[in-house]
């Protein structure tokens, strides 16, 4: 302290005497204070991650808000589409209200056979009707006598029953 100029010897003596007085000790517990200081410091450091996460979340939200709708590009693709002519379009068959597909495989087979037979009749006429009823599971085979064996009159009840079967199917009744 003596490097400062302008002090008289008496002032320097007083300065030295005052400097001999020791400031009173603090009443803070040193160890407790250091613990608190370390804890406060750790708390502040740990606060960095939540703050960083929150900031990134806000940035992500803002970027999503300002991104806008994605641009939809229409690319024309040429394809060959086969369209059935109106004259040959099969008539649509709408099931009756409340009709549910049956789980019976025999019924499904009968329905498929009926549709095929109907299409043939619609395009070729009544002559398309087979002379002998075919087995549904094996088309072309029959368990019944041929028309030649039983006569054409025998075949008419069979056709009648087929028509009744069609009516039942359209009404949604079970066979």
């Amino acid at each position: 302290m003596s490097q400062e100029n302008g002090l008289t010897p008496a002032q320097r003596e007083l300065e030295a005497a005052l400097g001999g007085l020791q400031p009173a000790a603090m009443q803070i517990e040193r160890d407790r204070f250091l613990y608190q200081a370390g804890r406060a410091s750790a708390t502040r450091r740990n606060r960095a991650w939540p703050v960083l996460t929150a900031a990134l979340s806000v940035m992500l939200g803002l970027s999503l808000l300002h991104r806008g709708e994605p641009e939809i590009q229409t690319v024309p693709v040429e394809r060959i589409v086969y369209v059935q002519s109106p004259g040959h379009a099969p008539a649509a068959v709408f099931p009756a209200a409340g009709w549910t597909p049956a789980a019976d495989p025999d019924l499904l087979q009968a329905q498929a056979y009926y549709v095929q037979l109907r299409d043939r009749v619609l395009t070729e006429g009544l002559d398309a009707l087979p002379l002998r009823p075919e087995r549904l599971d094996r088309p072309g085979q029959t368990d019944l006598p041929t028309a030649g064996q039983r006569g054409r009159q025998d075949y008419l009840p069979l056709r009648q029953s087929l028509l009744q079967r069609r009516i039942l199917l359209l009404n949604g009744d079970s066979l």
Binding site: Q36, A37, G38
Partner: peptide, 29 residues
Amino acid sequence: PRLALYARQWLDAALAEDVVQEVFIRLMA
């Protein structure tokens, strides 16, 4: 202790020590 003595120019002993303590905690951070 010297900082507490300095703070006592404006505050009583307890408040002066509080200020010193806060300053050291800020230093730690």
